[in-house]
């Protein structure tokens, strides 16, 4: 009857999202008067899960699962759900979560709510609040199936420490050859760069920066903050920056703690995609730019003067607060 949670790891180490979904699962389990069971895939050390309220971990160690494979992971999670008799399955909304969740939903006959942003208001019937219309609204969604899947938006719940005793159990799902029909032949991933998906802070540049040659100061600011870099749609359409940096309604969603927008006007399509970020700072030389209505902090002025100055001051601040 426990709440089951999929804890994502990479090269044997849990991602931060694993601890956030575990924290959330603990909240749901408390509401339902039950415990939390995590499923880990080739994680080396699972003990940290105890900090976030996980009572038991089903530990899968299987070389065939060393690389993410949506079908095989969904199959393993299905078997874990059935073994535990779990009625609620919690996962995150990373690219991998979003890939496997609909497969798992069909295999389990479970209703699935994605982009969930809060603990359920009720667990019987289960009602969750999720974003809809690309952050322009919320929808209170009720799931009516016996088993339910909740996809928690990144940074919506945060980490909640809740130390408990953790027990570990080896788990060997039986995998079929059908699980391995889609195969990865190569991966291309910049190892040293903070990604928009993982970043706590995102520094984003728009057409106001005039050209790709001016992105050095955006990268410096981002590096100082340990942030990822992003851009508005026209900037990627013109080839100033790679498409993978395009954020907004038709690009990547951003749910960072801090989003710094430099030379971006704040068009509705841009705002829709980044609105889920907690704190937004706008730097723009036009005091009438619509972005100022959607942000927490604003500085009116020339980005070419402000950004390097801000970076210098942040370096000082970091040095003094280290």
């Amino acid at each position: 009857m426990s709440v089951l949670v999929y804890t994502e790891s990479e090269e044997g180490k849990f991602k931060k999202t694993a601890f956030e979904v575990a924290s959330y699962a603990k909240g749901v389990a408390d509401m339902m008067g039950t415990t939390v069971t995590a499923v880990s895939f080739n994680a080396k050390d699972t003990s940290e899960l105890a900090q976030y309220g996980v009572n038991k971990v089903l530990k899968i160690d299987n070389d065939k699962l060393s690389k993410f494979n949506a079908e095989a992971y969904a199959d393993a999670l299905k078997q874990a759900t059935e073994k535990e008799g779990a009625k609620v399955v919690v996962l995150g909304q990373t690219a991998n979560d979003k890939y496997l969740a609909p497969l798992l939903a069909v295999h389990l006959g479970a209703g699935y709510a994605s982009n969930v942003v809060e603990l359920p208001a009720n667990t019987d019937p289960l009602q969750v609040k999720r974003t809809a219309f690309t952050n322009k609204a919320f929808s209170i969604t009720q799931i009516s199936t016996d088993v339910k899947i909740v996809g928690l938006s990144k940074n919506a719940f945060g980490l909640k420490e809740n130390p408990v005793e953790l027990s570990e159990e080896e788990f060997s799902p039986s995998l079929a050859s059908e699980d391995f029909k889609v195969n990865v032949v190569s991966v291309d991933k910049a190892a040293d760069k903070v990604t928009i998906a993982d970043a706590e802070i995102v520094v984003s540049g728009g057409r106001g920066l005039k050209g790709p040659e001016n992105w050095g100061m955006i990268e410096d600011l981002a590096e100082t903050l340990g942030a990822a870099t992003a851009c508005s749609k026209p900037v990627s359409d013109m080839g100033w920056r790679p498409h993978s940096e395009h954020v907004g309604q038709t690009g990547k969603p951003v749910a960072a703690n801090l989003y710094i927008a430099v030379g971006i006007s704040g068009a509705i399509q841009h705002l829709a995609g980044i609105n889920a970020s907690k704190t937004k700072v706008v730097i723009n030389n036009d005091p009438e730019a619509p972005f100022f209505k959607a942000a927490e902090y604003g500085v009116v002025g020339d980005a070419f003067e402000i950004v390097p100055k801000l970076t210098e001051k942040l370096k000082e601040f970091k040095a003094n607060n280290a």
Binding site: T94, A95, N96, V182, N183, V184, V185, S186, V187, D188, K189, A190, K193, T195, I196, A197, D198, S244
Partner: peptide, 8 residues
């Protein structure tokens, strides 16, 4: 994928 791409 988050932070890159993969070929399948």
């Amino acid at each position: 994928i988050d932070g890159g791409k993969e070929t399948l």
